[in-house]
Amino acid sequence: MEDKYKITDEELIARFQAGDESAFEEIVHRYSGRLMNFAYRFLLDREESEDVVQDTFLKVYQNRNAYKEIAKFSTWIYTITGNLAKTILRKRRNRQLFFFSRLGPEEKDIEFPSTDKLPEHTFEEKYDDKIVQKAIVKLPEQFRTAIILRDIQDLSYEEISNIVDAPLGTVKSRINRARLRLQEELESLKSK
């Protein structure tokens, strides 16, 4: 995935640590889309997802020297985004408990991004996307993270294992169960 870039992510962050601000801009350029997709699939809210991504970059900016080249930069940045997204989910749950409301984010009307940029998407595809997205948010948090990182973000098992801080075997098992569960959810949504 990174082969298309002449400078690796690790070199970029090293430059940024040395004081090169333009390296930070390049990091934002490389990761904003990927992280936005990850956060959006997780939270299903465009504004919140964008806030999460901005907070991720803010944390990278503030804690640039906390990154040590023992792990891949992508792993580090995805971990930050994942943690921030989980915090948002926790806040949502607390808010729900506070207002004794049964209407959670899962039941909210799904907000879909404008398709102006993607004219090739047909109505059927949009409908398909909607169903799939609905099924994803119905998955338990651990399964959701695993399947988004593997099947949408196309990360390796090792990277996912580092991001979610779980053994490789556990990650494989979570992905397998998430796929089976997603299939069940899709079937039940289609039958409705």
Partner: peptide, 11 residues
Amino acid sequence: RLASLSKIAVS
């Protein structure tokens, strides 16, 4: 399907 989900761009 998951791999071909529409990409969400930042504003």
